[in-house]
Amino acid sequence: MLSRFFVPDTVNYMIAGYLVFGVMISGYVMSLILRWRKAHREYVYLRKDQD
């Protein structure tokens, strides 16, 4: 097939795309974990305060 020679080289864009995806979504997951920890610490602290 002649057209195989004309496949444009766009690998870098693909890698960039999936990198961006990975960074953004894992960033969000991290923020969920951190916020949970913070809230939990406060929860435990206030609970102790109550008793």
């Binding site: 057209s3 444009p8 766009t10 795309g17 995806f21």
Partner: peptide
């Protein structure tokens, strides 16, 4: 498979 007209960047489409 890699799409012949656009090359690898077309693979971004699935997650896009």
């Amino acid at each position: 498979p890699v799409e012949v007209m656009m090359g690898s960047v077309q693979k971004v489409f699935y997650f896009h």
